[in-house]
Design a protein around this nucleic acid. Structure first.
Lengths: 210, 210
DNA sequence: CGAACACTCAACACGGTGTTGACTGCGCCG
DNA sequence: CGGCGCAGTCAACACCGTGTTGAGTGTTCG
């Protein structure tokens, strides 16, 4: 694995940086962010605590990097999603929401820690805000388009509705993946969320029928 | 509920305890919980740091006491609410949700800090869970009753729906009172939340019409 | 009056964060 | 080939916030 001699005698910086991120994600799987010390991260990456500061300026920077990866994954998967809201509104919304459920569930520790860190760290808050904003904007556009073709009723502002539904998803998904109480079963989460989105966007049990 | 230290009330003692709580709530109005030290609370109450520990065993205990007061207020106001879901479903839901918006908005600092502390503190989590549970149970009962009288359609489980909507409220209210971005205007929050509740519970823009 | 109780705090122990400054080995350029 | 520079490393230190100890104070009541 770690080859010595010729080109790179010492373990490269990039490997160390990755090792820190890897350690952090692993530890977040078993402990809360607050209970992980920089010492833990350094030890996991095989370096001393001061050396950690060569790679990241704080524990929060590590979390920020981890969050950035998760958000990038979401963006790629959003882009890959088929856009069939006119022909299959229920299925399209469900697939979009399901994508969020999948990604956040598979990065439980990072998502949870980032959402908590938002309250105290400006960079984390900014990054999360930016993403929420773009998801809300996307939802708003689709709602407006559904209203324009007469499939969904007017009423409350489309943006307000989109923001509220996205915030609901954030909170419900967090509760589900952390098995909070009260929460709902992970197996039913997607169905429940999709139903609430559809009923509140289309004002009816069946999308498209006014 | 949260009681420690002295038993018989020597005047200055109880005043001190109140002074700590008062200081905490005041400071939470201007700073994040993490940025308030026990030193700050002690100074605000006119005592030294070790003396603080005579009244509370940690900063989290103070928050717990504060949260307890807020929850008690919510419970009293829930109990005082008229139950007119059959005759005026939209108004009844709106009044219930509005009560939560009011109470949490008027205790912005405490609510926000408690919700954040939930992630690391067992007692805070337990207290919050207990309350969320009872609000979700209440909502579930009303939904079931509305379904029973034929005003609301079946579909997803009433409890799952109730939990999700309550979680949405928690998150949207938090975003609104902290002026997060994205969030919605405080003036429209109640209308938006009520609309989502009604549409998703009654499966229609107009409650009662199936 | 003295014992018990409510209350107070200086001083300490501890754990975590972030910084300093000295050191090592590799690569490259003159 | 030799020395300079830089990526990388860490022991030791400074600092801050938490929680504990133990020695006090004044008050009340039997």
């Amino acid at each position: 694995m770690v080859q010595r001699g010729r080109r790179t005698a010492r373990v490269s910086g990039d490997e160390r940086q990755d090792a820190i991120l890897l350690t952090a994600e692993a530890l977040l799987g078993e402990r809360v962010f607050d209970d992980i010390s920089i010492e833990d991260l350094a030890a996991g990456a095989g370096i001393s605590r001061p050396t950690f500061y060569f790679y990241f300026s704080s524990k929060d920077e590590v979390l920020l990097a981890l969050l950035d990866r998760v958000i990038t994954e979401v963006e790629h998967r959003i882009a890959a999603l088929p856009r069939e809201f006119h022909s299959d509104p229920a299925g399209s919304w469900t697939r979009s929401i399901g994508m969020f459920v999948d990604v956040f569930a598979s990065h439980r520790g990072v998502s949870t820690a980032a959402i908590a860190a938002r309250a105290r760290n400006d960079e984390v808050r900014a990054l999360w805000s930016k993403s929420m904003q773009s998801w809300a904007d996307f939802s708003t556009e689709v709602i407006r388009s559904e209203r324009a073709r007469g499939a969904a009723p007017d009423g409350i502002d489309a943006y307000d509705l989109a923001v509220s539904l996205n915030l609901m998803n954030e909170r419900v998904i967090t509760a589900v993946i952390n098995q909070e109480s009260p929460a709902i079963a992970e197996s039913r989460a997607l169905e429940v969320l999709a139903t609430i989105w559809i009923r509140s966007i289309y004002g009816s049990v069946h999308p498209g029928r006014l």
